[in-house]
Simulated scan of single mutants.
Amino acid sequence: MKRLVIITVGKTHSGKSTFARALEKELNNSLVMDQDNHAEFINTYYKTLQPKRGPNTLKHAISQLVVDYAIENTNFHLIICNSNRSRTGRKYLLEQLFHKKDFIRILVHFDIPDHVLQARVTQSNRNTNIFRSASNFEEVLIRQQADSLTEDVTIPYEDEADHLFTVKDNQEVDSVIQRIVHIAQDL
């Protein structure tokens, strides 16, 4: 039987983690996989193993192990919670890890205006132990805003996955969660 994979897409403080936790409570037999948890684990116990520059290959390896284990050893609906703003990265997830024959693939794009995100990061009390090369979330947002000008960082498009939902403000979160729960109920 197919199961769902829900992949969040968006900048820091757009509501991805809050959405993922709320969805996990409403969607029976689901599990959130959040790369921030993997980053915090590495920074707490294995900080010296991290690459100093370039992609965080250690974090990605841990995330890959967790995903592989969940796919092979559980029947959970999977909620993949990280930014996923790169088209190349999403393509890898959708075509290599979460095959169409095994999963109904759902993208949830958080398209929150930058001025709202700026206010959120300025007031943020979130733990910064997830960072490798930034000291606060404002730096992360500035970097993500600059990355938005690159070719590979793109908003998801309609045919990229089986379903695409866009959240433009927090008022839309509950209705998106209910629509995803209904998709699961129709399996």
Rank of each mutant, 00 (worst) to 15 (best):
K11T: 04
K25W: 03
V153N: 10
R120H: 13
L97K: 07
E24H: 07
Q50R: 14
D147C: 09
L65T: 15
L49N: 12
N125H: 13
S86A: 14
N29I: 07
I130Q: 13
S175M: 07
I104S: 00
H163F: 15
V116L: 09
Q35H: 09
H77Y: 02
R53V: 14
L94N: 01
V108Y: 04
Q178K: 13
P51T: 11
F41N: 03
E138C: 10
S17L: 14
H115P: 06
L4I: 09
G89Q: 00
P156N: 08
T88I: 10
D68C: 12
I71A: 02
D102S: 02
Q50G: 03
Q185R: 10
I130K: 08
S124I: 12
S133P: 01
N82C: 02
D152P: 08
T18E: 13
Y157I: 05
E138T: 13
D34R: 11
I79L: 08
G15P: 03
Q96R: 03
F41P: 09
I142Q: 09
N56G: 11
A184P: 09
E95R: 09
N37C: 12
D162M: 00
L93I: 05
R3W: 08
T128G: 05
P156V: 08
A22D: 04
A184V: 06
R126C: 14
V9R: 05
Q171W: 08
A161V: 02
R3T: 07
V66L: 10
V181E: 04
T18Y: 15
A161I: 05
N29P: 01
S30E: 00
N73K: 15
K59Q: 15
L117W: 03
N84S: 01
V121D: 03
V9K: 03
L65C: 11
N127P: 14
A134R: 10
A22K: 11
I80R: 08
Y69I: 08
Y69K: 12
T44Y: 14
V108C: 07
L107Y: 02
L149Q: 15
I7S: 12
A22R: 03
K47A: 08
A134M: 10
F165M: 07
R21A: 11
R120D: 08
A39E: 11
V140R: 04
A22N: 03
I183Y: 00
H163T: 05
H13E: 06
A134Q: 08
I6Y: 06
E139A: 04
T57R: 10
V9E: 02
S175H: 07
A184F: 03
R105Q: 13
S17W: 12
T8D: 00
F103P: 00
H38G: 11
Y157N: 09
L78Y: 06
A119H: 02
N82D: 13
C81E: 04
L93R: 06
A70G: 04
H77D: 15
C81L: 09
R179K: 15
V167R: 05
S30V: 13
